[in-house]
Structure formats: structure tokens, C-alpha cells
């Protein structure tokens, strides 16, 4: 578990434990994603309200709707900044270590030895900002390092692939 000072980035671009932060444009990409989710939610909410109006039911049941929408909008507005500030990753010889989260902070550790496959994926939003996600496949499921600068993502994938191939060759 990390205290808030543990997330602080030093002059070398690393935390005191050697974790890296994301590029600033990753935060912009997160905001765009949030804006899209908010717009879609508002449209769905509007459709539901119109439908509800047709039923003629008591308006008291509509009371939670604005509250939920305000909470959702606040969350989508604030969450990219927090997610960005708390997103830290570290790639070592034996492990991939990712810390992320907004309300709940998850610390995920993937032993390099367990990796089966590495994939670099770019969605339309990431593409817009020159970013990419690295998806790590293990026999127990997937792990991700998200919103990396495209070159960094390719380098990570290449180095991990080389490492996995080296392990497999040693076994042969």
C-alpha cells in the first residue's frame, strides 16, 4: 500500500520506489473518454425520463435521477485527474507491477515468467493522443498497462517479448 507521498515523482521521473508515471496527454485522453461516457449517459437518461413521463407514475421516483447524474458527472470530471495522479507502473526483470485506482487502489503484480503473450492495442481515443495500451496475457487472465506513450508501449512489448523468448529458448 502506498501513502500519498509515495506517489510523488522525483527529478528522475520516478517515485522513490522506482515507479513511473504516465505522460500528461494520458490525462487528456482520460478526460475525452469521460466526456463521451457522460454524453452517452445523459442521452440514455433523457430517453428514460421521456419514457417515464408517459407512464404517469409518481414523480417522487424520479428524485434519485438528478442526484445520480450529478454524482456521475462529478465523478467523471474528477476521476481522470485522480486516476492519472495515482497511476504508477514498474517493469523489472522478474515482474510487472501496476498501481492504479480512484476510490479503490489496486496493486497488481504479474511475474514475467507467467506471461504468455504481449499485445499493444490502440483505440481511437488513444490514437488521437499518440498513446497505446499494453495487454499482458497470462494463463490466469489479462493484465493491462494503459495510456502509455506509443513508443514506450512498443518498447515495453518488445523487451518483454524478447525476455519471454529467452526463457522459452533456455527451456528448449
Amino acid at each position: 500500500m502506498m501513502a500519498s507521498e509515495d506517489f510523488a515523482i522525483g527529478e528522475d521521473g520516478l517515485t522513490k520506489d522506482g515507479y513511473r508515471a504516465l505522460e500528461k496527454r494520458a490525462r487528456a485522453a482520460m478526460y475525452v473518454r469521460s466526456a463521451i461516457i457522460l454524453a452517452v449517459s445523459l442521452v440514455i437518461c433523457g430517453i428514460l425520463l421521456i419514457f417515464y413521463g408517459e407512464t404517469g407514475w409518481d414523480r417522487i421516483f424520479l428524485m434519485p435521477v438528478p442526484a445520480v447524474m450529478i454524482i456521475l458527472a462529478a465523478y467523471l470530471l474528477i476521476s481522470p485527474a485522480i486516476y492519472y495522479a495515482r497511476y504508477r507502473y514498474r517493469i523489472e526483470e522478474d515482474r510487472i507491477d501496476v498501481r492504479r485506482g480512484i476510490i479503490f487502489i489496486r496493486h497488481e503484480i504479474v511475474p514475467v515468467e507467467r506471461i504468455h503473450q504481449i499485445e499493444v492495442f490502440r483505440g481511437p481515443i488513444n490514437n488521437l493522443f499518440g498513446l497505446a495500451d499494453v495487454t499482458i496475457t497470462t494463463a490466469g487472465g489479462l493484465a493491462h498497462i494503459r495510456h502509455l506513450e506509443r513508443g514506450v508501449a512498443e518498447d515495453i512489448a518488445d523487451s518483454l517479448n524478447d525476455h519471454i523468448n529467452k526463457i522459452l529458448k533456455e527451456r528448449d
Binding site: M1, G101, I103, F104, I105, R106, H107, E108, I109, V110, P111, R114, T138, A139, G140, G141, A143
Partner: peptide, 27 residues
């Protein structure tokens, strides 16, 4: 047999230094 380990802390656990652990296996 452990493939990934995820340790999670939230607002109800973080103040007390607690967390939960989710382990994924080869399945």
C-alpha cells in the same frame, strides 16, 4: 500456480492499513 496477484485497498480499508487480495490461477 499463481499467475497474477492483485492487492486492493479502498476507503474503508486504507485508513487501517488493510487490504484484500485476489489471486488468479491457471484455470
Amino acid at each position: 500456480k499463481v499467475q497474477t496477484v492483485r492487492i486492493r485497498d479502498g476507503p474503508l480499508t486504507r485508513p487501517y492499513g488493510l487490504a484484500t487480495c485476489r489471486v488468479r490461477l491457471l484455470t
